[in-house]
């Protein structure tokens, strides 16, 4: 039951999601430096420009830019890619996300797939090297510029993520301590906090994040039991990779996620399971993007078969 006229409108809704991201992004900036800011700025410019150009070509009103959805897509993509990736990566990815992921289907509301994750998967497949070089040190204003805009050797800066480290360690049979608070854990906590804010603001519902986290916990616990050589355990998975960002900001994209209450539970849970499977056995380090896209494809079917019971039927 809703009391009085709700104040939210669609563009405000998107803005709230962007607000929710602030803490996580701030932590990313604290750890990785100016690269983060450059990527976001580049993505925002590209995303909005791509949308405006496309709308101009279609001779449509560019007013819809005010719904902030292009901006949100751009930011989500920018914070998903490594902060030391060259500039053309983010430009290419954002324009692909906006044009192929959204505008070709007729704009906001019609896209079957999550545009940001589509852009990310596209980049990861096409440029695996650039997309898996992460840094663990703070880049100053100038360093960031240098890294992103000139092709200097950045091997010195880059390091593997904890997810990758864990995978290698387990493969080599080395001892790996899953409980260790590092940068990724902090960033995940930041996004968790932002997610709670969104929930408090009633921007997102509880079904998707909770069922997703449940899926992650259940599947990783199960793997611990049956295949402990490869498994890293629920606690590790919850706070590494893009788990929290995915749970509260990516999966909850209403357009491409399931829209029925029951469907959302199925949607989130299956993504959780897929993420663990891909992280544990797949070739790519993290599975959130692929798992989200895979379940996006299944959304029309999930929606149809999870219709709520209609009053009187």
């Amino acid at each position: 039951m809703i009391t009085g006229k709700p104040i939210l409108n669609t563009s405000n809704l998107m803005l709230q999601v962007i607000y929710g991201l602030i803490l996580g992004v701030a932590l990313q900036f604290y750890f990785f430096g100016w690269g983060v800011i450059y990527q976001i700025t580049l993505a925002l410019i590209t995303g909005i420009a791509a949308e405006i150009i496309f709308l101009k070509i279609r001779k449509k009103s560019i007013d819809v830019i005010k719904d902030n959805s292009a901006a949100l897509t751009a930011i989500l993509l920018a914070i998903s890619i490594p902060s030391i990736a060259p500039w053309w990566i983010v430009v290419l990815g954002t324009s692909f996300a906006i044009i192929f992921g959204k505008q070709l289907y007729g704009g906001l509301g019609s896209n079957p797939l999550n545009p940001a994750m589509l852009g990310y998967a596209f980049l990861l497949i096409s440029f695996p090297l650039e997309m898996t070089r992460w840094t663990s040190s703070f880049l100053s204003f100038g360093e960031g510029l240098n890294v992103i805009f000139s092709s200097i050797n950045i091997d010195a800066l880059s390091s593997a993520t904890r997810l990758e480290e864990a995978k290698f360690a387990l493969m080599e049979g080395e001892v790996f301590n899953p409980i260790q608070i590092d940068q990724t854990v902090w960033i995940n906590l930041g996004f968790l906090f932002g997610g709670v804010y969104l929930f408090y603001k009633k921007v997102i519902t509880w079904q998707i994040p909770l069922s997703f986290l449940a899926g992650i916990i259940v599947m990783s616990a199960l793997l611990m039991l049956v295949d402990s050589d490869h498994a890293m355990g629920p606690v590790f998975h919850l706070f590494h990779g893009a788990t929290m960002l995915g749970a509260f900001f990516i999966l909850t994209d209403p357009v491409s996620s399931s829209t029925t209450p029951r469907g959302r539970l199925i949607f989130g849970f299956l993504i959780g399971i897929l993420v663990i499977i891909i992280r544990t056995y797949g070739s790519y380090p993290d599975g959130v993007a692929f798992a989200v896209l895979l379940l996006n494809i299944a959304v029309p079917l999930i929606d149809y078969y999870s219709k709520p019971k209609v009053f009187g039927r």
Binding site: V64, G109, P254, S257
Partner: peptide
């Protein structure tokens, strides 16, 4: 504006 399937209507 475009429907973003937020499902407030279903609620």
């Amino acid at each position: 504006s475009a429907c973003i399937r937020c499902s407030k209507c279903n609620e």
